[in-house]
Write a protein that binds this DNA or RNA. Structure first.
Lengths: 195, 195
DNA sequence: GCAGACTCTTGCACTGAGTGCAAGACCCTG
DNA sequence: CAGGGTCTTGCACTCAGTGCAAGAGTCTGC
């Protein structure tokens, strides 16, 4: 799992991070759609083609490594005490996301970029769709549903609903300028579903 | 609301329907991504440019008129008895969607196209994002939450969760080849969230 | 019936994302 | 220093989507 990263891999990570930082700055300045890949590449000092070796798409720069992050959440979910309820376990697993995220200021900037670009929102939701498949089996277990080759739709719906609560919480947090308490927003949203 | 449609408007609708039918046939035959707009236009006998006068994007052909459909659901939701619970009201409002949809066979084909194209899934979720805003105020009322200029995040989360249950139900229905009962899948998914 | 307005359609030219390929630069190892 | 690997780059291409302006068709009032 935790292979020692080689020099190459570390260099690659560093390059990715630098590209992302520059790109986010440009996005914040001029808007996501108005910033072209050529501009990002030029600002970093690489070719347009190289940009696409580091990121599969312009959206990927802002979205981070979907798969890796999804795996992190899955691991956190599986590490929760086995008897914990599905809702509690997933809420605690989501906290891992915040631990991985940057500073509050960075997150607000990202949320702002996110907010103004429909294509980004779409990709964000697509990312959640992949997480859904990833987290569903463990949730299925915790819901007491029998295991199945394809995930049970009830487990999928559960995960999707949890992610929806998370998104609603993050969005409200962003709109409050970072003053609201995300934990509380999330818990309240969940409570509202279950009333 | 129900302005008498002019001849032009009817002609336009008919043209849209014909383009959509042809496009869906091509998508089903060769796949969504593999079918280009030029091919659709050629098959219908119009220019590529005209295609984009009828549909804003390739995805739009499959997605239908998002705004109109969203309005329909909103109207159905508001027409439910005022004292009905939020869950019951939204479940009943969703039934309106099925009433507007085509035959079962058509729906299965659409679901299949949907299933294999990530960009379509993304747009579909984006569509739901817009519905979220549309349906949230009425749900907010039914949840007993005070009205607010921006929708309450709890109401948004509620609507998103309901849409997630709907998607999970439709998806499971598609995977069962149309044999499962969508109503039941939806109800079960909701029950699982609330347990 | 006809002139003028209005919309529909089309072609053209353009931007911008994303991909495949192949050549050269770079770097690590034997 | 020679060899193999990866990294970077340029080039050429596809495809979605847009703005514009000119022509074709249609509907109106006179």
């Amino acid at each position: 799992m935790a292979d020692t990263p080689t020099l190459r891999e570390r260099a690659r990570s560093a390059a990715r991070a630098e590209i992302a930082a520059t790109a986010v700055r440009l996005f914040a300045e001029h808007g996501f759609e108005a910033t072209t890949v050529d501009q990002i590449a030029a600002a970093v000092g690489i070719s347009r083609r190289s940009f696409f070796h580091y990121f599969g798409s312009k959206e990927d720069v802002v979205l981070g490594d979907t798969d890796a992050l999804g795996e992190t959440v899955r691991a956190a979910l599986e590490a929760r005490p086995p008897e914990e309820s599905a809702w509690t376990a997933i809420r605690e697993a989501f906290k891992e996301l915040r631990r991985r995220a940057g500073s509050e200021k960075e997150q607000l900037i990202l949320a702002g970029i996110h907010d103004q670009a429909p294509s980004l929102r779409a990709r964000h939701l697509e990312k959640h769709l992949r997480w859904q498949e990833l987290l569903a089996p463990e949730i299925q277990r915790r819901l007491g549903l029998p295991p199945s080759p394809d995930p049970d739709p009830r487990a999928l719906a559960f995960v999707a609903a949890a992610l929806a609560c998370l998104d609603a919480a993050v969005d409200a947090w962003y709109r409050s300028g970072g003053t609201d308490d995300i934990e509380r927003l999330f818990t309240d949203a969940v409570a509202t579903l279950r009333d």
